[in-house]
């Protein structure tokens, strides 16, 4: 394709999109149209940014008599402008807080606020009000809103969210989310002081996923090193949990990981996915000088490449060998050329 032709065709696409936006804008502004048509028009308009359009959209958003789907769509359509205006942010926070508003509208409000939070220069001054609203939503009857609010707060290491999550783990009658999700959310903050709870969860897990989560998060707890080793070597343990313990141990205690990874690689009775993980861990992060002197390990990895028990093992073995061949961690031959 000639470049001028490429430009011409692309420009035509842009012009078609512009026409569609103009039509959408026009149709949305026509109040005589039914809600469904105006909603479809908003999709074509994409974003409302002019003063009059935004004012029209705000009228729709604040009109409780109006169809909730249209209200939610109008809110999303002014998302860009919300991120530039404290007044609009306040309006949307009000919608989020208001338990009498339809869930759809409140969901749209939450999405719009999260999107707007990326325009930090404008949004940061409103963070206290937003956080205050999110904390109120933690006890909302709408599950989805409650979970989202809790997640957003927990990612921000919010003290109140952490407090409520810990309470829910200690007293299941106060559960806000599943135990596995609760520990995951707490795991955003290594200072959240939940390591005893994690160790308990490993011993008595409500689900495999919860156990996997707890194991993964114990990577931050030096006191759990032996526990992680035990899990890694336990062939009766779920493979996903053992893989999680491999990653955790490699982070927490690389020397111990390397020792046990080698045993796993040498053991033909081991699961292949764990062997692949072990090979990769050594290839990418191990003490290369020590590895280079370990002929027993190198021979076995070569053998696993030549006679791979699985595709994952073959790929990992190939990566290990190419990285060893280049003589350092992360050389140009870090990957396989397939």
């Amino acid at each position: 394709m000639d470049t001028p032709e490429h430009r011409r065709q692309y420009t035509e696409r842009i012009e078609r999109a512009a026409e569609e936006q103009r039509e959408g804008l026009r149709d949305f502004s026509d109040r005589s149209r039914p809600a469904e048509e105006r909603q479809s028009a908003l999709r074509r308009a994409v974003a409302l940014r002019g003063q009059d359009e935004v004012a029209e959209a705000v009228d729709v958003i604040l009109d409780r008599e109006e169809d909730p789907t249209l209200r939610a769509s109008a809110l999303r359509a002014i998302g860009i402008e919300v991120g530039k205006s404290h007044d609009l942010i306040d309006m949307v926070i009000g919608l989020l807080r208001d338990g009498d508003e339809p869930e759809m509208v409140r969901q749209a409000a939450l999405r719009t606020l999260q999107q707007s939070s990326f325009r930090a220069a404008t949004f940061n001054p409103k963070m206290p009000e937003y956080t205050d609203a999110l904390r109120t939503v933690i006890d909302d009857p709408e599950d989805s809103l409650r979970e989202q609010a809790l997640e957003i707060l927990a990612q921000g290491k919010d003290e109140y969210a952490q407090r409520r999550l810990l309470e829910s783990l200690e007293d299941p009658s106060q559960a806000l989310v599943s135990p596995g999700k609760a520990v995951q959310l707490l795991g955003n903050d290594i200072h959240a002081d939940y390591y005893p709870l994690l160790r308990d969860m490993v011993q008595d897990p409500p689900s495999t996923e919860a156990k996997q989560e707890a194991v993964r998060l114990l990577a931050a707890d030096p006191a759990s090193k032996e526990l992680l080793v035990d899990i890694l070597r336990d062939k009766n343990e779920y493979r996903e949990v053992r893989n999680a313990s491999a990653a955790a141990l490699q982070s927490l205690a690389p020397a111990e990981f390397q020792e046990h990874a080698k045993q796993i690689i040498l053991d033909d009775g081991e699961y292949n996915d764990l062997r692949a993980t072990a090979i990769d861990g050594l290839a990418l992060f191990a003490d290369q000088e020590a590895l280079s002197q370990d002929t027993e390990l190198s021979s076995r990895v070569e053998q696993l490449k030549e006679q791979p028990p699985s595709d994952e093992v073959e790929r990992s073995a190939a990566r290990y060998i190419s990285m060893r061949a280049s003589g350092e961690t992360g050389p140009a031959a870090a990957g396989t050329n397939v």
């Binding site: 963070m127 956080t131 205050d132």
Partner: peptide, 24 residues
């Protein structure tokens, strides 16, 4: 603190939300 300000209160210890009036 201006980018990490928060809604808080010292009216009670370990408050539970919603709180009536917050300070920052």
């Amino acid at each position: 603190v201006k980018y990490v300000d928060d809604a808080l209160t010292f009216e009670t210890y370990k408050p539970r939300w919603p709180i009536k009036d917050h300070t920052t």
